[in-house]
Design a protein around this nucleic acid. Structure first.
Length: 738
DNA sequence: CAGTGGAGGCTTTTT
DNA sequence: GCCTCCACTG
């Protein structure tokens, strides 16, 4: 091929180049962290379009997260320009939702189906369990949910599960599964797993539909292949059936979603299903320093169930991996902040260069508090998902109900927002009526307006007050549904808010009403993107977006704030400076993984993912004691720390020396050395107790005490009104007053 | 029927 | 330690 001077191939190493150029036939790219994977994928697509004039319309690129999809689109538009608009890029779930909206009629699916999230699924499962008399105390909903989800990920529908199940628990699950399936179908809803399952079923049962899509997608790319589950892989295999131009990119060492039924065995499956596949290994790391790569490599090699793979770098060694030990969590967070500050001072690192990574979201709270206390700007990634907030779900329930009145879960939520005085008993009557007639709750409501000659048993069982309230609610939904065919989605939202007096409701019934109202406005802003769609379409698209895009505030790099993020979410990102906090047994690896080798190895991969996010500096912190699940106990260093070779590992004692570590704490295998005394005194104006100061947020206060701390001053200030705060002088913009 | 208070449970990661 | 669910009370 005469490709040597193609600018798209320039600057690629031989393996990367091969991955870009091998456009025909199946390709398996094993891409270690920092090996230029995204570059390979984007260049490969650009190469297909620019060099081989493949229409972007005929290319499908599947990513694992919306963030990755967005990033890919952005990079591609720079390489290829606006032509890539016709490219299909997105998550499996988004692809399936689109497919089912267009083709769902082949399997009896109404195109206005609702997508149920995790929470909705639990609500409906509870209802299903109640209906088949299975006690949710004896069988936790989560366990049942897991079993059903797992089954769906293996493309086993309720009937297949029923004929395959063994043992008592599985029989119970099977009963719930069948009931749940009946209920969710009646609600014209699909859960996340259904999106995949039903898509596979649609394509395998409808050869003509399959053929259309197979013909369309001449080239298929799958990113993060190690995170696909069986259903996803089957879908990919179906779609690639005709051209077999399928390129999967992944790294088994970064597989951290086994709990979501991701199956690393898909990689083996791929090699079996596509025996002619070319394998390409990208092993050179361009991201991290030598020490970081070596440390990460050592940790991951401790996994036994692993295919050996070398990761190397030609970058310089860099500073050692620092393993600070702190007394407790508070001190851990304080160390992070003061170190961030120190790096900024001596190396010019900005807050945006640094990220703090942790295993569980619960750890973020203390970090946030530390940031607030020391005045460091931060950006919390994830946390409570936007669309799971009560107020957001309230509004969404109305919108869903307008789009799909059969949606029972949303009806149950909306009917008492605002309070309409419809209580347990009335809801029971309503639900019983619907069950006995096999209808939706909405249909049950409609019976209230029906011909009294026909079936007025529901009306008779209800109090006249309840019946009147229900009729009023029904009228409201009908009115809004009618308006929804005229109004754009933003106007529709305004109508819902107005007709429900939602602002008043929030003010009266929810804490933090302003914040909640702000979230509602945020949702309204999100809807503006769909304002110009034809009326019912805008609503459908908005609801789909809300269901499939997890964080409303997608992660954006910002130069001046510290990133707080879970290890899982950090996958795919990189930062010059990374702090991994909570390197302790029970946290990383997590308690729930300790008794299972497979899960333990996944924890180790998670650790590996975290370590390999770091470009220049990596800190792995551990505290001697930690507050956890109510307790406050000693904690042992993570076994993963011991796997980092001592030669590149620098223990570091707390920045603020404390009294000796209390008894009862297992002494660790290393001697914590005291932090080197900070020779370079901070060029900060001296503050002393009694001084009056002003803080931009906290207002005026008086200095209570000053403690030198790692080249900085830790200042305790009593603020008027706000109370006592501990601040780092260099970060908190304190102004000394006369 | 709704709001409050207490007790109990429960702790992971996300499309 | 936190949040959720439930039972009781107003």
């Amino acid at each position: 091929m005469m490709t040597s001077y193609d600018p798209l191939l320039e600057g690629l190493n031989p393996a990367q180049r091969e991955a870009v150029e091998s456009i025909e036939g199946p390709v398996l790219v094993v891409a270690g962290p920092g090996s230029g994977k995204t570059r390979v994928i984007t260049h490969r697509i650009a190469y297909l379009v620019r060099k081989w004039h493949i229409s972007p319309y005929r290319i499908l690129a599947v990513t694992f997260t919306n963030r990755a999809a967005g990033e890919m689109k952005e990079r591609l538009s720079r390489l290829v320009g606006s032509r890539i608009d016709r490219l299909s890029v997105g998550t499996f779930h988004a692809f399936c939702a689109g497919l089912l909206r267009r083709e769902g009629s082949h399997i009896g699916l109404d195109p206005s189906f609702t997508i149920y999230d995790d929470d909705d699924q639990v609500q409906l499962l509870k209802e299903a369990m109640a209906q088949v008399n299975i006690d949710s105390k004896q069988y936790p909903v989560r366990a049942i949910q897991g079993a059903i989800s797992r089954s769906k990920s293996l493309v086993l529908d309720a009937a297949s599960y029923a004929s395959n199940c063994e043992g008592f628990f599985e029989e119970q699950v099977s009963k719930v599964y069948e009931k749940y399936d009946a209920l969710i179908r009646r609600s014209q809803a699909l859960d996340f797993d259904d999106l995949l399952l039903r898509s596979v079923q649609l394509l395998s049962k409808n050869p003509d539909v399959l053929e259309r899509y197979q013909r369309r997608y001449q080239h298929i790319l799958i990113d993060e292949f190690q995170d696909t589950n069986v259903a996803q892989y089957m879908l990919a295999k179906l779609l690639a059936g005709q051209y077999r131009n399928i390129c999967v990119v992944g790294d088994a060492d970064q597989s951290i979603y086994g709990w979501r039924h991701a199956d690393i065995r898909n990689i083996l499956g791929f090699q079996k299903d596509f025996p002619e596949a070319r394998s390409i290994v990208l092993g050179e790391n361009y991201r991290s320093t030598g020490n970081i790569v070596e440390a990460a490599q050592k940790v991951i090699s401790a996994n036994n169930l692993r295919i050996h793979k070398e990761l190397w770098t030609s970058k310089e060694e860099g500073p050692p991996v620092v393993v600070p030990e702190t007394h407790d969590e508070e001190e851990e967070d304080q160390f992070v902040i003061s170190e961030v500050e120190r790096l900024g001072r001596i190396e010019g690192a900005s807050l945006g260069d640094c990220a703090v990574m942790y295993r569980v979201n619960a750890q973020s709270r203390a970090l946030e508090e530390a940031c607030l206390r020391y005045g460091a700007r931060y950006k919390l990634v994830g946390g409570v998902r936007f669309y799971q907030r009560k107020e957001v779900k309230d509004l969404i329930a109305y919108l869903r109900l307008i789009g799909n009145p059969q949606d029972d879960v949303s009806l149950v939520r909306a009917i008492n927002v605002p309070r309409r005085g419809i209580g347990t008993k009335s809801m029971d009557d309503l639900s019983r009526w619907a069950i006995s007639r096999g209808t939706s709750l909405y249909a049950a409501l409609e019976s209230l307006n029906g011909d009294p000659q026909e079936d007025d048993s529901l009306r008779r069982s209800l109090s006249s007050r309840a019946a009147a309230q229900m009729t009023a609610f029904l009228a409201l939904v009908q009115e809004l549904a009618e308006e929804s065919s005229r109004l754009d989605v933003v106007a529709l939202i305004d109508r819902v808010l107005e007709r429900t007096s939602y602002r008043e409701y929030v003010t009266e019934h929810y804490d933090l009403p302003d914040e909640r109202w702000e979230n509602i406005m945020e949702l309204r802003r999100a809807a503006e993107e769909f304002k110009d769609e034809e009326p019912p379409q805008g609503l459908t698209l908005l609801l789909e977006r809300l269901a499939l895009v997890a964080d409303a505030d997608n992660y954006e790099e910002s130069a001046d704030s510290l990133t707080l993020i879970t290890l899982h979410q950090a996958k795919g990102l990189e930062f010059p400076v990374v702090f991994m906090v909570g390197m302790e047994e029970g946290l990383l690896p997590h308690f729930r993984s300790l008794d299972d080798t497979g899960q333990l190895e996944e924890e180790r991969r998670l650790c590996y993912v975290g370590m390999t996010r770091a470009k220049d500096r990596l800190y792995m912190l551990r505290a001697f004691r930690r507050r956890f699940a109510g307790g406050y106990g000693p904690s042992l260093p993570s076994r993963f720390l011991q796997e980092v070779p001592a030669s590149i590992w620098e223990p570091q004692a707390p920045a603020v020396p404390r009294r000796t570590i209390s008894e009862g704490v297992q002494s660790s295998s290393w001697e914590p050395s005291m932090a080197e005394p900070t020779g370079d005194a901070p060029a900060l104006p001296g503050l002393s107790p009694g001084d009056k100061v002003r803080h931009p947020t906290f207002g005026e206060g008086m200095v209570v005490s000053c403690t030198p701390s790692a080249g900085d001053n830790e200042v305790t200030v009593a603020f008027v009104g706000t109370g006592v705060k501990r601040l780092l002088q260099s970060l908190a913009r304190l102004e000394k007053l006369e």
